[in-house]
Amino acid sequence: MIYSKELDSNFKLLIAKEPGGENIKRCFSCGTCTAGCPVREVTDRYNPRKIIRMALLGMKKEVLSSQFIWLCSSCYTCYERCPQDVRIPELMNAIKNIAVREGYMPPAMKVQIELLSSHGRLLEVTEFENDKRKESGLPLFQGRTEDVKRILKELGFYHEEERGPS
């Protein structure tokens, strides 16, 4: 049941202000996105038309705290087909950006932030990889960069003091 008292009619405006979310109000619920969605084909837990409808209705908490917003595979099939140019994968990112700000960061993203801060990349290039590169005649890698850590730190996504010994 949806209770109108619990709806936040400003939610769609909040999304529309977020980069990628600008076109949310154009959606007329045709379902082209969902019909061609490869994620939807294997699970009914992801339904972009429903998510957009929920967002437009103002079901802020239900959308932001959900796991389904993280199931978009960013394949851009719907992006190309949407007759209203809602740009759904970018819209999902806009919603996810808001969710993170509201404290709903999924564990998988915490792990990725940690890795990116430590290595500047998702996968560490160790001596093992560099040895293999040397063997194969490939130029060697500089294992890490502090720049990514700096970006994530300045924007408040990485807090050095909270880190345990690595």
Binding site: E18, N93, A94, N97, M105, M109, L122, L152, F157
Partner: peptide, 9 residues
Amino acid sequence: PIKSISHHA
């Protein structure tokens, strides 16, 4: 990977 967290980052 960071796009879903922050467009600016």
